[in-house]
């Protein structure tokens, strides 16, 4: 599936929950290898867009493509090979009764990929976790360590595209810095494409090249992350959000 210029594209996408439309006419493209942010406040629909791409929000219309393949209305095994998601809360996203080893082996078993032992070992090393964590349970790990496990799990199938839903907002600033550095390094080493949902503009400034700003279910502006340097936004809502976030 290599060789696509566009990793993710949305064309006039509407998304609903139980018939209630929550995202209206969303269109954007993320280039292969790009890091793109979806920014907005709670209820803006930013996480819903991520879910629709992952097949977790089935009621959508319009066109979604991931690496040239049409989007799915349910979780899809082929999509999972190339596109994985990391969730906000590392306390909620890991099964409490599965060891790190089980969590990391499961995607390999589902997709019938061999060499599990070596792959799990390598995945732990890649996210900077010592091998002594391999047989621990989530409750024996700190928040930062859990998020490393969640990232390792997402990387097990060697996807090209990563959907990141507020990956650091449940973490302390010093831990956030570690995870942001990790995400940046992994992307550089593997040429990954990131689509990250966040409400934190400085995080966008650190990790992303472009951003789409969402308000009340609509994309109001798409801007380069460098606009965060000087506040060169044209939409009034974006300007307000920028000022409230401590921008000049």
């Amino acid at each position: 599936m290599g060789g696509h210029m566009t990793a993710i594209s949305l064309n006039h996408v509407d998304i609903a929950y139980d018939g209630q439309r929550v995202v209206h006419d969303a269109s954007f493209e993320v280039a292969t290898g790009e890091s793109f942010a979806l920014v907005g406040e709670s209820g803006s629909g930013k996480s819903t867009v991520l879910k629709a791409i992952a097949g977790l929000a089935p009621e959508w219309s319009g066109r979604i493509e991931v690496l040239g393949q049409p989007g799915s209305h349910r979780p899809d095994r082929t999509l999972a090979r190339h596109c994985q998601m990391v969730f906000q809360d590392p306390y909620g996203s890991l099964h409490p009764r599965k060891t790190v080893d089980a969590v990391l082996s499961e995607p390999l078993a589902i997709h019938r990929i061999g060499g599990q032992d070596a792959r799990v070992e390598q995945a732990l090393a890649d996210v900077g976790l010592d091998r002594r964590f391999r047989f621990r349970y989530p409750h024996q790990l700190s928040g930062g360590q859990r998020q490393r496990v969640a990232i390792a799990r997402a990387l097990m199938l060697e996807p090209q595209v990563m959907l990141l839903d507020e990956p650091t907002s449940a973490l302390d600033v010093s831990v956030q810095a570690e995870i942001l550095n990790l995400l940046k390094r992994l992307r550089r080493e593997r040429g990954l494409t990131y689509l990250m949902v966040t409400h934190n503009l400085p995080v966008v400034s650190f990790l992303c090249e472009r951003m789409a700003v969402m308000n009340k279910g609509r994309i109001v502006e798409i801007a380069p992350a460098t606009a965060l340097h000087d506040g060169a936004f044209r939409d009034p809502y974006t300007q307000k959000l920028y000022a409230a976030s401590g921008g000049a």
Binding site: V173, S174, E178, N181, K184, P202, S205, F206, L228, A248
Partner: peptide, 20 residues
């Protein structure tokens, strides 16, 4: 100082955030 430095900035130019 470590806490202050670890916070990403709006005008971020650092390639890596300092880790404590």
């Amino acid at each position: 100082r470590g806490l202050l430095a670890a916070v990403p900035r709006m005008h971020e130019t650092r390639d890596e955030l300092p880790v404590m």
